[in-house]
Design a protein around this nucleic acid. Sequence first.
DNA 1: CCAAAAGTGTTATGTCTACACCCATGA
DNA 2: TCATGGGTGTAGACATAACACTTTTGG
Lengths: 254, 254
Amino acid sequence: MTTKTGDPGVPANYDPAQFPAFAVTVDMVILTMSQGRLHVLLVRRGVAPFAGKWAIPGGFKRPTETLDEAAKRELVEETGVDSASLLKQFGAYGDPGRDPRMNVVTIAYLAVLRDVGSVVAGTDAADAQLIPVSQALNGKIDLAFDHARIVRDAVERVRLDLELTGIATAFVGPTFTVAELRAVYEAVWGVQLDGANFRRRVVTESGWVIPTGRRARPGSTGGKPAELFRAGRMWKQGGPIRHPQSPDRGKGSQ
Amino acid sequence: MTTKTGDPGVPANYDPAQFPAFAVTVDMVILTMSQGRLHVLLVRRGVAPFAGKWAIPGGFKRPTETLDEAAKRELVEETGVDSASLLKQFGAYGDPGRDPRMNVVTIAYLAVLRDVGSVVAGTDAADAQLIPVSQALNGKIDLAFDHARIVRDAVERVRLDLELTGIATAFVGPTFTVAELRAVYEAVWGVQLDGANFRRRVVTESGWVIPTGRRARPGSTGGKPAELFRAGRMWKQGGPIRHPQSPDRGKGSQ
DNA sequence: CCAAAAGTGTTATGTCTACACCCATGA
DNA sequence: TCATGGGTGTAGACATAACACTTTTGG
């Protein structure tokens, strides 16, 4: 950050020493898997502007805390969840007029939770709800402020991180079946993966999952009981599964 | 962004309606290749705080412009370069006390330029200089504010983007040799790549580079004159080269 | 027994890597 | 003609994807 004076090309009538005041907020996109589909946690606004519209939770940053601390604090306040590891900053939004009341720059965070059911109950907001991201992104539900864009960016980030980080394990519980893990990839990427090859990658290659010895009960439709695993150490260094057709090697035309 | 009241767990004496005022700045990490090494553009601060220390260029966001516009404006003001495509937001920094004067949240941008020589001359700051990132990161040169951390994060981002985006072409000119391109990967990743395989990936697979018919003159030490190419369309969809040992498949132990 | 889901085996195909070798230039 | 860097060929190691097949459950 530098203060410059007399720079050619700079409007002389703009004095950066009189810096404009902004409010700074942290907003959170909280994602989870439910019934095999990706959901986002939204709250209904009670006050103007955008009263009655859905929005992602968030709040003001305090001067005494870091951005990460603000996000963690807001996450606890809104959902009762205290798991810092899955909180990740992914963007800043400061378009003029994005909040009609004042100049607001928001720092957007991404949080991935497993089976939020009981977690949502912990919040005081009576109308907090998990909404399928498909509905939040196709305009069926229109969000307050520029939150539709923020959610879109968050989902895009998760799609990338699924390949590059261990974020997939954040969607499932402390123990999980291979099929549950595969469902995460299939829902977020919108693809179908071969169960046999997926399992091979994840259980045969060591470090990804650790067998617990226990088994899950099959569903009402039957089937062989699945082994239960817990996450191994390799997830800290990346993900085992590559997105089909990514990176797309340019064959053919020229 | 929601205003909440009476939330259990929230200090009751904190009223978010009295939101604290922040200054918002955009700071830019400007990277380029010089003599086969990655360099960052730094300016020497003339005023307190941190007078005399090196810093990355930046400036205040205006309420009437977006963050991207602010970054683009500052880039033009500081370097005279007007190439929006290679400007990319990569992080926000708001630790308390990062600027001793006031509460400042900065949005950090990354810009990659080719051979900045003439570009730097365009700035008014007499003591703007290209510094090898190795020196900026190993503490040999200590930067103002939290700029060392910002530069570190930017370089880490470039390392990732080299694999995932077409950012490599931003380091080279409108026409370039395969060796120049390979030098970008080798310098940023700190590895050595097989020239034969690199060339195959990049010229044999169509869409990455387009032959111009011209050739570069060999250096004073001789050698076969290298073909000159320009970037093809595939770079918009990702990068052709994968980082060695990434993602590291966990072989061996356990 | 049948359907469904988990889990194993096998094989063709494709990609990556290492390295031997040829080409064109400056000194 | 020698050193240097550009550029081509190729074979083995390795990874991927497709799918047949076996196992274990619920109904």
